[in-house]
């Protein structure tokens, strides 16, 4: 049903050796402009096991999209500067790849669904062509075969294949997002990054798109990273969750750990700012204050200023990672005190 990428024997060997679909260590991304340096991502480690869906949660500007773009080496340099101990995608260090090798991996092994379906399609190209080009770029397929596969992809995402010869502006937002998904999945990538795939859609379409993604994931065993700030979407889709704040991961664990055994004060704040279905008249408790300016980050914990538990030490130094036996990690200085716990947990 899908096209199988023409991967050299060497690449296959590399892939077999890597246990992780994505293995990133100490990723830092900053944007240098003439007036300031924006520290977008400040040292994150990320391991994505094969077949697992990882949710990355955090508010706007936390560095979610930037860190994902750097996985595909899609950050514009300049102004962007990407540094990392390593970025292994499917066992390949993407930082060391040439432009041509990158082109071979993008779309074929790692693909991306973009946030805004209104702008992520080429307005002067028919949707069928846009799906088929991804197939044609990664293998010697005739135009006719590629178009045939594109039509099937459309059918898979629930759009009549007869609409393959229409332009993006003739589609609704939800349909365009489904076209985006069809493009991303056309080459059956092993890793799929979905950057807020449902943010621009209304709720009914959201449910459809999520259902579709989940279905495709179980069918093809794709490893997936889902960027979102919707905790409901996370609960529905993800096996593991990483919470990001000001360019750092502050808490990471399984879905159950994050939702039921919350450790970090910021995660607690996120849950508190959700409406409570059992007590509909209760007022929401938003986190006071704003995220610090990424061009001017504090020396200590970036969340300290908004944190109800902040102590003197929080302002002085960066919190270190603390990993529990069950694999649940938290980056918070308060946990040096073994007795410390947040209110939600108690």
């Amino acid at each position: 049903m899908f096209y199988d990428g023409n991967v050299s024997a060497e690449r296959k060997e590399e892939k077999k050796q890597s246990k992780y679909a994505i293995d990133v260590e100490n990723l830092r991304v900053r944007y240098e402009t003439s007036s300031e340096v924006v520290m977008a991502v400040n040292g994150i480690d990320l391991q994505l096991k094969r077949g697992v869906t990882l949710g990355i949660v955090g508010e706007t500007g936390a560095g979610k999209t930037t860190s994902m773009l750097s996985l595909m080496n899609l950050i514009e340099t300049p102004p962007g500067v990407v540094e990392a101990d390593h970025i292994y995608v499917n066992g390949t260090d993407v930082q060391r790849l040439s432009a041509a090798e990158l082109c071979r991996i993008r779309g074929n092994e790692i693909a991306m669904i973009f946030q805004d379906p209104m702008t992520s399609l080429n307005p002067v190209m028919k949707v069928g062509e846009q799906i088929s080009e991804s197939i044609m770029l990664h293998g010697r397929v005739s135009k006719k075969d590629a178009m045939e596969r594109a039509a099937r992809m459309l059918e898979i995402v629930g759009i009549s294949p007869s609409r393959a010869s229409e332009y993006p502006h003739q589609f609704s937002g939800g349909m365009r997002q489904r076209v985006g998904i069809a493009i991303a999945l056309a080459c059956k990538p092993e890793i799929l990054i979905a950057d807020e795939p449902t943010t621009a859609l209304d709720v009914t379409i959201q449910a459809q798109v999520l259902k579709l993604m989940k279905q495709l994931k179980t069918e093809y065993g794709t490893s997936m990273i889902l960027i979102t700030h919707d905790l409901g979407v996370v609960a529905r889709m993800c096996d593991e969750v990483a919470v990001m704040y000001a360019g750092r991961i502050v808490e990471q664990g399984t879905l159950k750990q994050i939702f039921n055994e919350t450790l970090h004060p910021y995660t607690e704040g996120l849950f508190n700012s959700l409406p409570n279905i059992h007590n509909r008249v209760a007022s929401l408790k938003p986190i006071p204050g704003l995220m610090p300016d990424p061009a001017n980050l504090p020396q200590g914990c970036a969340f300290a200023k908004r944190c109800p538990y902040a102590a003197q030490a929080c302002y002085a130094e960066q919190p270190a990672r603390k990993t529990y036996e069950d694999g649940h990690s938290v980056w918070c200085t308060a946990y040096r005190d073994a007795e410390f716990h947040i209110k939600r947990k108690g």
Partner: peptide, 22 residues
């Protein structure tokens, strides 16, 4: 700087391809 250029890069299109087709 449109997102569809970025998405073309994400499916592995080369610069030359992007210039001529996009």
């Amino acid at each position: 700087y449109n997102e569809y250029i970025e998405s073309a890069k994400a499916i592995g299109a080369s610069d030359f391809y992007i210039i001529t087709k996009y």
